[in-house]
Simulated scan of single mutants.
Amino acid sequence: MSLLDTLNLSYPIVQAPMAGATTPELAATVSNFGGLGSLGSGMTAPDVLTGQIDTIKSLTDRPFMINLMVLSKQEYTTIDTELPTWLSEYYQDNTIECALPKCPAQNFSDQLQVLYDNPVPVSSFTFGIISAEQVQHLKNLGTRVIGTANHPLEAKAWADIGADAVCVQGIEAGGHRGGWLPQSESDPLGLLTLIGQTRACTDIPLIAAGGIMTAQDIKAVQISGAELAQLGTAFLTTDQCGINDTYKQALIDASQGNRSAETRLTRLFSGKLARGLLNNYLRDFAEFENANALPPYPQLNAMTKFMRAHAAKNMDAEHLSLWAGQGVSLVKQESTNELLERLVKDL
């Protein structure tokens, strides 16, 4: 059975689960159209997540996906590194208050419990891998399980524990890298290479992600061996997306030639590699772009939160994390349905 049939979709389109950018309304709109809408919930408190799942269920009776970030208890409870001197000085110079939270991220175990208590059609996971027992528990509840991989070995690991599919994320993808093995960072692969190498080591169904913006891109990854295409950046400038106006305008400016569409892989915002538009923050602090010198994820993410909030309040795109993939020059200001109609017209 094809993944399209397994997930009960009309079109081979998955809307990427971009934490902080997706909304229940966006997910429901994509699902109602016949694609797979999703909600990036890795940064969402468990009680809020329960409410958001209920909202999506009230807006659609079609399959949708909830995505969580796999973090260990040590990772989500611990801040054991100092605020970097350069960041501390930036806060002082700009009179930005910085009161670090007790925990740098949400409790993953509690978030996963929400999916047990309030089952969803599809769950996906990034930044790590869950156990075979956890996969089976979800499947027993009627939930399909999708892993994320930047390397064939990660895809095989998901296949080995019984996942229904793997989203293979090429180096072109915007936002955070979903892999967790050293190989995915030491030798990052382009999407078509990743699909080919993954197909050679496992026959698990694949969803392709990274730089996909058009119907032609979708057909290309299907020819290469993926069944579905996951698009993120293309949805960021649509009406149902939850990003702030300053971020959205920066993406549109990049597509219209009013600012550079150059993207950069950086650790400077969160401690974990992520691709976004080049801006002054990444230029000004480029000398600190070193894994060994930066607090790890999610600690640095908790530390830069105050800068990003201040930038959003002051409509300052130069100090926001402007996550975007390498296809950003093709974004359009349009409704979610207009984007979907445009994609399926040429499929």
Rank of each mutant, 00 (worst) to 15 (best):
L7V: 00
N8T: 13
L9E: 01
I13V: 12
M18Q: 04
T23Q: 06
P24N: 10
E25I: 13
L26E: 12
T29R: 15
F33L: 03
D47N: 11
D54T: 00
T55H: 06
K57H: 13
L59P: 09
R62T: 12
F64T: 07
V70G: 01
S72F: 03
K73C: 09
E75G: 07
D80E: 11
T81I: 03
N94W: 07
E97D: 15
E97P: 07
C103Y: 12
Q106D: 09
S109H: 13
L112Y: 08
V114W: 08
L115G: 04
N118L: 00
V122G: 01
V122L: 01
I130A: 04
S131Q: 05
E133W: 02
H137Y: 11
L138Y: 07
N140S: 12
N140E: 11
V145D: 02
V145R: 01
I146K: 12
T148S: 15
N150D: 05
H151L: 03
L153Y: 13
A159H: 15
I161K: 07
I161D: 01
A163E: 04
V168K: 05
G174N: 06
L181W: 04
E185P: 00
S186I: 09
D187M: 08
T193M: 15
L194Y: 12
G196H: 14
R199N: 12
P205T: 02
L206A: 03
I207M: 03
I207Y: 11
M213W: 00
D217I: 10
K219L: 13
V221P: 11
V221R: 06
S224K: 10
G225W: 05
T233H: 08
T237C: 06
T238H: 07
I243A: 06
N244C: 15
Q249H: 12
A250L: 02
A254C: 10
N258P: 07
E262V: 14
T263E: 02
R264W: 15
T266M: 04
K272E: 02
R275K: 11
G276H: 03
N280E: 13
N280H: 08
F285N: 03
A286E: 13
F288I: 11
N290Y: 00
N292C: 00
L294Q: 00
L294H: 01
P298N: 09
Q299E: 07
A302N: 03
F306M: 00
M307L: 15
R308M: 14
A309P: 01
H310S: 11
A311E: 11
E318M: 09
H319P: 07
W323I: 06
A324Y: 05
Q326H: 10
V328M: 11
L330P: 06
Q333G: 10
E338G: 08
E341K: 14
R342M: 06
V344K: 11
V344N: 06
